[in-house]
Simulated assay, not measured.
Amino acid sequence: MKATFGEYIRQLRTDKGLTLTQLASQLDLDSANLSKIENGKREFDEKRLDKLAIAFNLNIDELKTEYFGDQFAKKMYQYNCSPETLIVAEEKVNYLKSINVKQAEIKF
């Protein structure tokens, strides 16, 4: 795990021997914006996660974990949240899942 999602992308790119321009093209970005993402000056657009997964042959669920983990960490740092915030968030996710399951149940 890298400190930021941008650093994670840079590591993937350099490990594969791609230039900024080559990867940016695969992600439908220009190389300047990709450089800003790698340097933490711009956020990566989650709509491009599928393209990133394809570019590096990554499991999309693992990539989402890395991306959203980074997003949560930034928000928690920004607002000086305690680690307990993650426990509460997990409980809320489980609750939301249970609501969706109940709504999807078919009653005869």
Results as ranks from 00 to 15, higher is better:
residue 1 M to D: 08
residue 1 M to G: 15
residue 1 M to F: 08
residue 6 G to I: 01
residue 7 E to N: 08
residue 8 Y to K: 07
residue 8 Y to W: 07
residue 8 Y to F: 14
residue 12 L to W: 03
residue 12 L to A: 03
residue 12 L to S: 02
residue 13 R to P: 00
residue 13 R to T: 02
residue 16 K to W: 00
residue 17 G to I: 07
residue 17 G to A: 09
residue 17 G to R: 13
residue 17 G to W: 07
residue 18 L to H: 04
residue 18 L to W: 01
residue 18 L to C: 05
residue 19 T to V: 04
residue 19 T to R: 12
residue 19 T to H: 05
residue 19 T to K: 13
residue 20 L to I: 05
residue 22 Q to N: 08
residue 25 S to A: 11
residue 25 S to Q: 12
residue 26 Q to Y: 09
residue 26 Q to M: 13
residue 30 D to H: 06
residue 37 I to F: 05
residue 37 I to D: 02
residue 38 E to H: 04
residue 40 G to Q: 11
residue 41 K to I: 00
residue 41 K to N: 08
residue 42 R to V: 04
residue 43 E to H: 14
residue 45 D to V: 05
residue 47 K to S: 08
residue 47 K to T: 08
residue 47 K to H: 07
residue 48 R to H: 08
residue 51 K to I: 02
residue 52 L to V: 03
residue 52 L to A: 03
residue 52 L to I: 06
residue 54 I to Y: 04
residue 58 L to R: 12
residue 59 N to L: 09
residue 60 I to G: 04
residue 60 I to D: 05
residue 60 I to Y: 05
residue 60 I to H: 08
residue 61 D to I: 12
residue 61 D to K: 15
residue 62 E to F: 07
residue 62 E to R: 14
residue 63 L to G: 02
residue 63 L to P: 00
residue 64 K to W: 06
residue 65 T to F: 08
residue 66 E to C: 04
residue 66 E to K: 13
residue 69 G to S: 11
residue 69 G to L: 08
residue 69 G to E: 10
residue 69 G to M: 10
residue 72 F to L: 14
residue 73 A to S: 14
residue 74 K to G: 00
residue 78 Q to W: 04
residue 78 Q to D: 09
residue 78 Q to G: 04
residue 79 Y to G: 05
residue 81 C to K: 15
residue 83 P to S: 09
residue 83 P to D: 10
residue 86 L to I: 13
residue 86 L to D: 06
residue 86 L to V: 10
residue 86 L to R: 13
residue 88 V to I: 14
residue 90 E to N: 12
residue 90 E to D: 12
residue 91 E to C: 10
residue 97 K to G: 01
residue 101 V to E: 12
residue 101 V to W: 05
residue 104 A to L: 11
residue 105 E to S: 08
residue 106 I to C: 01
residue 108 F to P: 08
